[in-house]
């Protein structure tokens, strides 16, 4: 069973009348409850790929099938962007509440869930705060709460910790993993940080640019919780970087 199947997806933009390919024949599956990391240099189309999956852009060739839990119900897809993208005129609680707009939950139930998800990301005390009153890391956690509150089957994350400092990034990675363990959700996380990709992923897809395509796939069969200092991760990092930079350059 797959949660998400990407089959032969290609995409190109018209630039000055010339078609410029950005994604070329991308295919991979995501299993339920699996974390797939996608790494690649900027311009390899990894963010574009997420936009296609979540449905922000429908102009592509190939097929994207969201498996879902059953055949009758379509899978829900949530998205966390690199910047938090909270609505500045709504409180943190109201921002998270937007996630229930498409559902027909009643008000008290919605309120309870807002509490729950804010607690999950450690922001219980900030429900009534406005986004500008939060630090960058807190705002990003609120954005994660908003995406999780949709109770998605698939969570897409576009460099969600990219703008944060490295200590905060490690903390949020661990928080993400603990949330992932509590909620059955498949995660596709796009990053340019190889260590992050390896630490989080069950599988790491390495992409290369011009046009964006899959260069290699690494299965990470290390048990969780993983040790960031594990020599096997270091070895994988070497291989991954070699693939990213190009074998010739490193040998």
């Amino acid at each position: 069973m797959t949660a998400l199947a990407i089959e032969h997806v290609s995409k190109s933009y018209a630039l000055n009348g010339v078609q410029r390919p950005v994604l070329n024949d991308i295919s991979f599956d995501v299993a339920p409850n699996e974390i797939v990391s996608i790494v690649g240099a900027s311009g390899c189309g990894k963010s574009t790929l997420l936009r296609l999956i979540v449905g922000l852009d429908e102009d592509y060739r190939g097929s994207i099938i969201q498996g879902g839990v059953s055949d009758t119900k379509a899978a829900k897809v949530g998205m966390v962007f690199q910047d938090h993208r909270l609505y500045p005129w709504l409180t943190v609680g109201a921002n998270v509440d937007l996630a229930f707009d498409a559902s027909n939950l009643r008000k008290p139930e919605r309120l309870a869930r807002v509490h729950h998800y804010l607690q999950l990301v450690g922001l219980s005390d900030y429900e009534k705060a406005y986004p500008k009153q939060l630090s960058g890391g807190m705002a990003q956690r609120a954005a994660i709460a908003r995406a999780l509150a949709q109770e998605p089957d698939i969570l897409l994350m576009d460099e969600p910790f990219g703008a944060l400092d490295s200590i905060l990034r490690m903390r949020l990675q661990d928080e993400l993993l603990s949330i992932w363990e509590k909620n059955r959700v498949s995660i596709v996380i796009v990053t340019h940080d190889v260590e992050e990709a390896l630490y989080l992923g069950n599988r790491v897809i390495v992409m290369e640019p011009d046009p964006g395509r899959i260069r290699d796939v690494f299965e990470i069969e290390l048990a969780r919780p993983r040790d960031r200092a594990d020599p096997r991760l270091a070895a994988l990092k070497q291989r991954c970087l070699a693939t990213l930079v190009g074998r010739e350059a490193l040998s």
Partner: peptide, 8 residues
């Protein structure tokens, strides 16, 4: 984009 991903 957020409004679209949340299906508001």
């Amino acid at each position: 984009d957020v409004a679209r991903t949340l299906k508001l």
